[in-house]
Structure formats: structure tokens, C-alpha cells
Design a protein around this nucleic acid. Sequence first.
RNA 1: GGCGCGGUCGCCAAGUGGUAAGGCAAAGGUCUGCAAAACCUUUAACGGCGGUUCGAUUCCGCCCCGCGCCUCCA
Length: 483
Amino acid sequence: MAAKLNEIILHNTLSNRVEPLAPIHPGEVRIYTCGPTVYSFAHIGNFRTFIFQDVLRRFFRLRGLRVLQVMNITDVDDRIIHNAAAASVPIREYTEKYVRAFLEDIDALHIEMPEELVRATDHIDDMVTLIEKLQAKGLTYSSDGSVYFRISKFPDYGKLSKIDVSGMQAGARVDVDQYEKDDARDFALWKSPKPGEHFWETRIGMGRPGWHIECSAMAMKYLGDTIDIHTGGVDLAFPHHENEIAQSESATGRPFVRMWLHSEHLIINGQKMSKSLGNFYTLRDLFAKGYKPSTIRFLLLSVPYRRQLNFTEDGLVQAKNSVERLRNFVARLKAEQFAAGSNPEIEKRIEKAEGEFDAGLADDVNTARALAAIFDLVRDVNAAMDRREFLQQNAPRTVAAMEKFDSVLALLVDDDDEKLRLLGIAPRKPQLPVSQIEGLIEERNAARRSRDFKRSDEIRQQLSDSGILLEDSKDGSVRWKYK
RNA sequence: GGCGCGGUCGCCAAGUGGUAAGGCAAAGGUCUGCAAAACCUUUAACGGCGGUUCGAUUCCGCCCCGCGCCUCCA
């Protein structure tokens, strides 16, 4: 299916095909995103998914759509309760550190804050209310103080993941939690506490919410019974999203989500990322190894979201150099002097690129196509500049186009060192104050004017040792940038 | 086994029923005091076997290979 003019098509897991986006509320897209479980630092794979939904929402906004996005933070689950108990701290205190780290991480990657970032533990009452609704409809049963959803009461179960649950016999599998269930397929809405575990005292008894109910409760609270888009990693389609559908649609009698968007996983050097293989990276691990936030953002967004991304050292190098090319281009546009006038051919060329960029993203967020549109433009405009066919009035227009692209990509601003500093990661090179950098450049210019190239090269080397690269341009000006 | 995602130049990755974008890397050149940046040129790819078709990388079938999910998991 090809997108019609101005149409945005997206692959819907529910139908397993691409469909045009048609928001329920005209002009506004409502999105629910499964956020992190804060039992530890988020890993690089998580951020692939988060960067995908970030690109998605940024593209919607570029299209003039309003975005209302809710992301949950799962700050209660078995691992959190276990780890907090082991550390002898309240769960809120235990998770706080990782919530903060997550916020810092998404900031470093230029992932926009969703309109609502909500914590599960702030919505226990909403979950209890939803469970009561299901209980009132006779869709649940209790066992040892826990409440389960009876899947046999929801005939559509499996419609998202296309998993045939009829083969999952009662008792065929042992639930990891060792709770008593009537049917292996049933899942917990509410879990009774084991001795010493954290619990809430509620109308449905003591305990804590199941994982799935929190997303249903929070999604519907903020976005309504039926929401436009629900995003998450492919692994969540079953059982998490399937269970969300069962609970939500049973409670409301209405479709829960119109479009399910699932991003494929990241694999590392061709293998699944796992702790046992020792290829498990957090963002901070990569930053500590010297990789920049913008490098990681580029790599993670450059591969379309429905394609598995093989994360390699080589890929990082390629990503870094690609970002450099884009930044060099904008720096040249801003620094170089061009002859007066405006070349209408350039204007047309920019419009073509804008059209291609938009068409790429409108085609199921095909970031590879969108990037190709930009790189095509970069090459053509660079060539025009070299041929002196690029004129003064073309520059602001071209910069504006690049900034428009960057409202989605968020790669151009060179704030990598600043972001790393915010994370407490020291720069690898000694930092020079800008005034000193500029002073040294001035001194080097003087040396060059007097053809003292030995001195001029010394200064260039000195700056290079501090992580500063110089570029002498044709018109005599000197640009500098961080490596 | 069921359900998915893939296999396109050295690497990453678009795309199309009429022999194929873009990025990175490589080689040569232009520019430069030298670099850097940029540009130009060059190199080079559709897993295999059948089928449909005038014609398939693109559609269909089978096979091979990689990865994922099938109640921890983005």
C-alpha cells in the first residue's frame, strides 16, 4: 500500500499491514508508549524503541498534528520488590535512582518528554477501579488473595499476536510466580503479597498490581477508552499487549487501540543482547567508552524500526561519520560567504528534498528514505557551492530546511560534550575555554599570514590534542569544532 | 511446531515487474603552504532452485541461512 498525498501510513500489528493514520480526535494523535521498568538502568535496546516513538511524535508535530503521549514508568514489579527488599529500602526510594537515570538518558539522546510521564505506583487506585469493573462483569476469579483474568471469557484473545492459545493447556506450564491459577493462560490482575513484601491496602485486598493492568488503567485514564496508537517493542506484543487488550476491551466493550506499532529488537554483533553473553550495554557504558549521544541516536534511528538492528562497533563509527557530514554541511552554510542573490534552482532543490523527507517518514517511518533525501540535498548543495552557483539568499533557506529536518532527527546541535557532562562523564580530552580557542586561532592566523607554518602547525596540533579540529575555508575564515 | 522480521556492493541500508537510492569505507584526482572540509571520477550488490511473464531482485512455490516471540524481557 502506497501512501496517498499527505497521508501517513503505519504498519499495524493488529492487521499485519500498513494503514493510513486516522486520529479519533481530528488534528490530535493520542499515543501510549510502554516505558521502562525501573529496576535497573535502561539498556541500549530500550532506547531503540524510545527513539522510534520519539521520531514518530516529532514527525507528527512537524505535520502540524498535536500529540498527546503517555508513557508509563513501571515502578513496581517482582524484580523491584525483590531488589528493594534485598537492599532494605522502600521501593520508591529504590526506583528513584533509576527514574532519574532514565530522565537523564532520554535527555542525553534528545528524546522529548511525553506530555504525561506517569508512574504505576501513583495509579494504584485507578487499577483497583478497573479490576473491580472486571470483577463486576464476572471475568475474574480470586485465589489465595490474588485476582486473575479468565481468558476463556475473552474470545478475541490472541488477535494481536496471532498466537493460538488453545494449545496452552491448563497446568502445562508453571507460572514463574507460582500462584494458583485455574488455567495456564490466565494472568494476574492483582497479586497478594508474600510475607515481608511491599503491598497496598485496597478495596480488593492487600497486594500489588499485575504488570498488564497498569498500562490499561493509565492509558485509558489519560487517553480515553480507544486510543490511536500504542507503541512498544516486539516482545511486548505477547503477552503484555494481548493482555492489555483483553482487560481493556472487556471493561469498556470498545476497541482499546486502533494501531499497534512494534519496533524490532536490537541485536549485538548478530546475537541477542543478554547479560550471560556479556554484550549487555547501557547508554552509560557506551558513553564511558567514548561514544557520543548523537552517534547513538543516529545509529538507532537510521535503521527503520521494523527491521532488526545489528549494533556493532563498525556501525557506531559509520554513524559518527554520518552525523559529522550533516554538521559540517550546516557549519559551511553558516560560515561561508556567498555572492549576492538567490538561485531559484536551489530553492526548487530544497523543496524536492523536503518532499522526499516527508514522504519517507510518511511511509511507515522509513527513516532510511528520509535520511537519503537529506544526504542527496547535502551533496547537491555542496556541489553548487563549489561551483559558486549557491548564492547568499539561498543560505538561510537551506539552513531552515536542515533545521526542519532536525526537528525530527535532533542530531545537528553539537551538545554532546554538554550532555555527557550532565551525566557526570568527563570529557576524554582537556577542555579549553572558547576564548582561549579563539585566541589560539587568531595567533595561528597571524603565523600563517607571515608564512610561519611551523608555528601555525604547532597551534593546530595543540588544539587537536584538546579535541578541537580546525578547518580553513576558501574565504580565509577558520571553523573549529569538537572531534 | 506455531507466529513474526530478515537475507541487496567490504560494512549499514532504500527501492522497483523493464537490470538498483543514500551513508560509511577504499582508490585516484581537484582545492589547500600542508591538512581538514568539500567536490569529481572509479570500484562493486539483489541467498539458492523452480514457476508465472516478452521480461523478476521485485509476484508465486519450495529450499537454505540469520534473528526474535510462544507467559522475565524494548
